[in-house]
């Protein structure tokens, strides 16, 4: 095979490989963006849900537990309370910020 033909073949192969790599990178990028958006979407859904629960909970048949009941149960729910606060902290502390406006 003449050298020129080999060169052309090699260039074509490189172009094909570069195209594949570029497509793979695009797909990978797309996947990464999609994954990041999914995480953000999950966070957004949680925040929207928390916000709606705080605002409309009582209208949706979820009136707030009487404060005294919550206080009496709280010593037995230390682990759950800590988990809840950690979860709220993860979501940019929105609920804590909401609850702390009077503090």
């Amino acid at each position: 095979m003449p050298a020129a033909a080999i060169k052309t073949l090699a260039r074509t192969l490189v172009e094909i490989l570069a195209g594949i790599a570029s497509e793979a990178l695009k797909t990978f990028k797309h996947m990464m963006v999609g994954h990041a958006v999914d995480s953000l979407q999950l966070e957004l859904d949680e925040l929207e849900n928390a916000f709606a629960t705080m605002v409309f909970g009582s209208l949706a048949g979820m009136p707030l537990v009487p404060l005294g009941l919550a206080l009496e149960l709280s010593p037995h729910m230390e682990v759950e309370l800590a988990k809840m606060l950690e979860r709220h902290a993860k979501y940019r502390d929105a609920i804590s910020e909401y609850a702390a406006f009077g503090g």
Binding site: P66, A100, G102
Partner: peptide
């Protein structure tokens, strides 16, 4: 802000009724 949390809890709606009930 322990003091402000205490202040907020003290003035929370329903706490006085709870104390009466107890």
């Amino acid at each position: 802000n322990a003091e402000s949390v205490l202040d907020m809890v003290r003035n929370a709606p329903g706490l006085e009724e709870e104390v009466y009930l107890r």
